[in-house]
Amino acid sequence: MKSFEMYHPLVLFYYFMTVIGMAMFFMHPIYLVLTFMEAVLLNFLLLRHGFWKKLMMYIPLFFIMAIINPLISHNGELVILYVNDNAVTMEAICYGMAMALMILAVIIWFNSYNGVMTSDKFLYLFGKLSPVLALTISITMRLVPRFKHQIHIITQAQKTIGMDYTSGSVWERIKCVTRILSILITWALENAIETADSMKARGYGLPERSTFSLFVFEKRDGWLLGVITLLAGISVAGSFLGYTTFYFYPTFSEMEWSLTSVGFYSVYAVLLAIPIVIEIKENIKWRYLRSTI
């Protein structure tokens, strides 16, 4: 059981949008490292064994994105070498790594968001504001995972009757892949018809249609929402004061380690650690209760 996902959908959505929004604009190295490390830790706590498989895809993606910037940008004062009379600078390399780290951190935070914010929570938040838009976004977000799951089932079923796309000649592999895609498209069309019939039977779109939800905004949700707002407000104030600003060009700006800057770093770290602390706390509590049985 994921403990953090038990909070109210409003709190979950507000937290992830706040954190992801700041992660996209804070390019200071300290903030980048904090964002990435705590995103990885939270993702591990939520996904457990499935995280390591995804981590293997993140590593080459990081290096690809980090290499691109020095090849297209030649700004900077610390020249390492020349490639076809184009300077490769330390500033360009570090900026490429910073951009790659920021993009990967945002991807991992969104991955955690998808693991916590299910489609029913999203519909609960935005269904009354714009039912059609909320339903469209919810169906779209579920589309890729469902297609991946279904294509795995179809592939395994085809292998049992000798239609293995990983073996045989090129023509036989093409035939197998075409058959799998044909079955997948047929399943998708049938599923769309069933979904439409189910929505019609449930009275979707009728003005008198009532809705039911299990989500209740409790006292703990209010406290957590207030804490998130306070910490986020302090972090944004630090950004306006320039503590999240770091320049890579024309050369590196000075890293500040004053008492005030460390305070802003700590506040941001605490903000990112909120779901991690909740998960670890509940895991310890669960293990203790199991040990007393």
Rank of each mutant, 00 (worst) to 15 (best):
L143D: 08
I93K: 12
E256A: 09
M22G: 01
I153F: 11
M17P: 04
V170P: 03
K200Q: 14
N69L: 09
A232N: 00
S112T: 11
I93E: 15
A134C: 09
A100H: 05
G96W: 10
N75T: 05
V83Q: 13
E5I: 03
G127E: 13
R146W: 15
L41M: 09
A192V: 02
A23V: 04
L71C: 13
L206Y: 12
G222L: 06
I185S: 04
S73K: 06
E77S: 06
S210F: 12
D164L: 00
M199S: 07
S235G: 01
M27V: 05
M199A: 14
I161Y: 13
R146E: 14
S239F: 13
L55I: 03
F126V: 01
I161S: 08
L206T: 11
P29R: 01
W187E: 08
G242Q: 02
T245P: 04
A87G: 10
T186V: 10
T186Q: 14
L71E: 04
P207F: 10
V19C: 02
L101R: 05
E38T: 01
A105V: 00
A87S: 15
F4L: 03
L181P: 04
L55W: 13
S73H: 02
K285V: 02
M24P: 06
F248G: 08
I280D: 00
I20Y: 04
H74W: 05
N86M: 08
L101G: 06
V262M: 05
I30Q: 08
T178Q: 07
W187Y: 02
I64H: 07
L41E: 03
F122N: 05
Y247G: 02
F126I: 00
G21E: 01
M57L: 02
M199F: 14
S138F: 02
L125A: 03
L189D: 14
L71D: 12
I193A: 09
G162H: 14
S112Q: 07
F147Y: 09
Y58I: 13
T251A: 13
Y165G: 03
I59T: 00
V79R: 13
V144M: 07
F62T: 00
L143R: 07
E256T: 06
F240K: 07
A100Q: 02
A92D: 04
L214W: 13
F36S: 08
K128W: 14
F36C: 00
A196M: 10
F16Y: 12
L189N: 15
E172Q: 15
F248E: 00
I274F: 00
A66V: 04
C176H: 01
E38S: 07
A273M: 06
A232Q: 04
W109A: 05
A157G: 02
N111Q: 15
V79S: 06
F13L: 01
F212N: 10
I59V: 15
Y14E: 10
V79I: 15
M102C: 11
I80T: 06
M27H: 06
I228C: 00
R48I: 04
G162K: 03
M1Y: 01
V79E: 15
Y243A: 04
V33T: 06
Y247P: 03
S261M: 05
A188H: 11
F110C: 09
S291H: 08
L10K: 03
L271C: 04
F25E: 10
M90A: 12
L55P: 12
